[in-house]
Design a protein around this nucleic acid. Structure first.
Lengths: 200, 200
DNA sequence: TATTCCGATAGTGAC
DNA sequence: GTCACTATCGGAATGAG
């Protein structure tokens, strides 16, 4: 079971991992996701033990916790934007158009410590490898930070089975249904990305 | 679609393929199966065009056709027995015990030319690679030559769907159910074979 | 839904 | 059920004295 606690070191001793931890204070650590699903993919980890062991659906019922995190979310968004812009430029030169950034929590996390994903929405990360990865960020399986607190009747509060079924649904990109053909969809996604961005 | 006619050359011009054709006359060719599912695996191919294009269920309703083939079946069995004995010896030295030989047709063939399988029942052929291969020789999907002509109510005369479903059933070997674990079953089959036979 | 490894399953293309 | 190739799907292990 210990893989479920892979994030513990960054909460307990962020100072030990300068290559992974971009920022930390007494409340949070902001780290680079070891298996990025977007070109840039960070995680915000609340360091408070009680908060960390809760699911996002529960932890973010508390307004204080949400408010406390807002500033860190904005900070992480800025870090993500800067990291992306440092690596990628639009071919059309229109620097006003910014890569969209997603801030969310998975409705059924696999790691036991609360973590907020902050990632560019290109879906071109090195470790975007399968249908579950893709659907975990493109369906309601992902709970956007601005959706918290969830309404009482939100299925994601109770219905783990329905959440998990979202990961198995057909792959949809740009209005097209790719059924289960992850590789074909990924090829199209990368093709489109390469039409818009060039690496610096 | 032309792969469905892979056997045509051995019917039309058996004299051209001495490395594959073990015997031929005006009625049949007996060839080595290119993808053997037993240690020895031959095919009897009736050369008559009308016969060849029928399914076994139809062709062997005709008694003359069956009778014509009987002698060739016995010949093919002898060839198979000799070829096996030339390569493999029982470790216990009991030469009276003979490897069993199966003579059958597939109820749903993939190749369009009528072919009778004659093979040792060791299930250890070089090309025994998956569940469908195995079930195609160990279930009623295989119609033994001595079952022809089929009774009128035999499902294999009409129900292609039921025939094909037999290929997907659980793997059974020596009374044990291996579900879909082909590799595990195959390991056991080879282990058992190696306990009884040694290569010459 | 952490990854990774292995194996079973499924679709395709073959001329 | 022809094969061979690719890719998808599905389970299990992952720790460690």
């Amino acid at each position: 079971m210990s893989y479920r606690y892979a994030l513990v070191p960054y909460i307990r001793a962020p100072e030990k991992y300068p290559n992974v931890v971009l920022f930390y204070d007494e409340y949070v650590s902001i780290i680079k996701d070891a298996f990025p699903k977007g070109k840039v993919h960070l995680l915000i980890l609340p360091r408070n033990e009680e908060t960390s062991k809760q699911k996002s659906q529960e932890a973010f019922k508390d307004e204080k916790t949400r408010k406390m995190l807002e500033a860190y979310v904005h900070q992480a968004i800025e870090l993500t934007q800067k990291a992306f812009d440092k690596e990628w430029r639009r071919i059309d030169g229109d620097d006003e158009k910014k890569m969209k950034i997603l801030v969310c929590c998975h409705s059924v996390p696999s790691l036991n410590n609360l973590h907020i994903h902050v990632l560019t929405t290109d879906m071109c990360g090195r470790n975007m490898k399968n249908k579950k990865h893709y659907n975990s960020f493109t369906t309601d399986f992902a709970i956007r930070f601005d959706e918290f607190p969830l309404k009482e009747d939100d299925f994601r509060l109770q219905d783990k089975g329905k959440c998990e079924s979202l990961l198995k649904q057909d792959l949809v990109y740009n209005g097209a249904n790719y059924k289960s053909s992850f590789k074909k969809m990924q090829a199209k996604i990368h093709e489109d990305f390469d039409k818009i961005y060039k690496h610096i």
